[in-house]
Design a protein around this nucleic acid. Structure first.
Lengths: 349, 349
DNA sequence: GACTCGGTTGAGAGCGCTCTCGTGGAGAGG
DNA sequence: CCTCTCCACGAGAGCGCTCTCAACCGAGTC
């Protein structure tokens, strides 16, 4: 249907500039060791011919692809369906393209995809991988780790409790949860309940831990299991209200959960925040800002998480600059980086 | 940090199986014209060595990359931040991987990125592109079109009013809008208002056109400009209520807009749907289901749109099967494919 | 039984690039 | 003025693969 003119090669540029292929190559790749007049001539030839290097040929010899895979496990799950992930992707993309790397997106669902992805990564088509997987029992991270591709994880993987040499970026779920609960206590509330997230995900576990850090072993009846969905929030809220009618505050594991809880609170005639203060997590805008009252919540800098993941990976790939005096000891990559969270006060608490 | 064993090459497999490189290549690529015993021997060698073809080397000679770029213009905009896009991406991904193609994600913002993307595409690193751009005046689609890469657009591009040979997939915004308005009329409402979307996007224009198809040139005061955001919806709703206190139904250009309108309606003491029936567009779940009352809205099969885009592109790339008796005349690609919408009845209308 | 023919296999030429060497010329040193 | 060094440049090998083409082999054919 199209397939027009064959794209110009190094050879063509060389001919036009009246130099050798090697010289053109040098110019194209930075131009060190080539005298100014020649550089200029080559540049012009490149320009005139509209030359663009053939990445395949280049990769063939350099073994670098300037491409990074972003693996998202189980996209039906929460990761993919909310703006959270879109933002992270944006951060990743920015950082990657800033360093002239491409982003290869790999979405998986189910076993078949696991092996497909593992093969692909092991196949050496990309220089590294950024992996998102929420579930503790997901075999994918393990497979990937074994594939021998440099990898950075988004969120703390379940099987790495600070031990192994796994590189990941996470936000401070535990600290954020503590802040939320403390805020509630600071408001003079004392019977603070918690609706957990899906506890097969580290973020949910960490948030629960944060709650416990502050509340100690308060009344265990004040904790009800949720699953990060509005429906789960409703269910848990009913349960809590039945069990502990006297509760005066709720910390929900995320904003979606909080929105469900909010509906039940209203239905049961509790005023928010007067009777019950409510606080969420994520600061998922379309939800947090649209509820009535708007949700007080814990925000994470999602885009920055993405950037950081990419930066970490790229740094690990590139055995070069080392900065002023060697920023970080060569082999010792930072195992996990945890980004701070901030409390966003709106009307619900 | 790692870089372990060099991966086995075709040569290695050939040696192990006691055949020539050519034969291994034939087997790896389908095995036609190779006798069974040999095929078996080669297969085993591949297995034992864990051989994975080097895609770079392959691309170098075949000029096919088995990779498709997905270009998303202006990710700050609505496209990227909502689940809409995530779903579309999922559809694309499924279709692409089913045919063993990779998905290279290109996010752009601003001029610099435009030229970067154009260069990348023109550079022949991918076999084709799927492009999302919402704004009528976006120069990117034009640039891409000129880059000579096979392209399918998501959503009807502004500059192609059915004329040019542009391939795109869109949902039936106009028809969906008509359905919505007719539904409202069917409910016995007569003063049906419309809050438009951002009119620099074809989807918004099409929805407005659909409204007009049914309402004729009703009272122009019944149309107020929005911008696809909740805030825009609030503003427009206030305007409408001031101008036409007697209105009894509102068709909002999308769910976000509807949620804003809903808030204003409640604030002004109008009951929904008793006093004013309200209907949205998109069926953006976290919004449409969470409002009070839940939103009646027009749904599009987003994931299918994605799949279809990918399928269209791939079909255009592959000059092969042609199906039973040549499904479609070779050169005559279907210019635009428009997917149907369905009305989802909830409580608001 | 010599000959042809369709089908299988191997040899070898590149695809476009990078990178190692070797060469030649300009400048420094004796 | 001649040698030694250093640096800019070109020649050429090869990255791992596909694909054309020639060689070969067994089965028909006359």
């Amino acid at each position: 249907m199209n397939d027009a003119a064959p794209r110009p090669t190094l050879e063509a540029v060389a001919a036009r500039a009246g130099v050798s292929r090697a010289t053109v190559s040098r110019v194209v790749n930075g131009g060190d060791g080539v005298r100014e007049p020649l550089v200029e001539r080559v540049r012009r030839a490149v320009e005139e011919l509209g030359y663009v290097p053939n990445q395949a040929a280049r990769s063939l010899v350099t073994k670098r692809h300037h491409a990074v895979a972003v693996v998202v496990a189980e996209p039906e799950s929460r990761v993919f369906a909310d703006p959270f992930f879109a933002l992270q992707l944006r951060g990743i993309s920015k950082e990657l393209t800033a360093q002239d790397n491409q982003l290869v997106l790999l979405l998986t669902e189910g076993r078949d995809d696991h092996t497909r992805v593992a093969r692909y990564l092991a196949g050496g088509h990309v220089d590294g991988a950024l992996v998102f997987s929420l579930h503790l029992d997901d075999p994918l991270p393990g497979l990937i780790q074994r594939a021998g591709v440099p990898t950075v994880f988004g969120g703390r993987p379940g099987w790495s409790d600070g031990t192994a040499d796994v590189v990941y970026v996470d936000s401070d779920n535990r600290g954020g949860a503590r802040d939320a609960v403390r805020h509630l206590l600071g408001l003079g509330r004392s019977r603070v309940a918690h609706i957990t997230g899906a506890l097969d995900q580290t973020s949910a576990v960490d948030r629960l831990d944060g709650y416990r850090d502050v509340m100690g072993d308060a009344d265990p009846d004040l904790v009800a299991p949720g699953d990060f969905t509005p429906a789960g929030g409703e269910r848990a809220m009913r349960e809590l209200l039945d069990r502990c009618p006297g509760l005066d505050a709720v910390f929900a594991a995320n904003d979606l959960t909080a929105s469900g809880a909010l509906r039940v609170l209203r239905e049961r005639g509790r005023r928010v925040p007067e009777d019950v203060a409510l606080i969420g997590f994520d600061d998922m805008l379309p939800v947090a800002e649209q509820t009535d009252p708007p949700l007080t919540t814990v925000r994470q800098d999602i885009e920055e998480m993405g950037r950081l993941m990419a930066r970490l990976l790229l740094r690990g790939l590139d055995p070069s600059p080392a900065g002023p005096a060697g920023a970080a000891p060569a082999g010792a990559a930072p195992a996990g980086v945890v980004l701070p969270t901030t409390l966003v006060r709106r009307a619900s608490a």
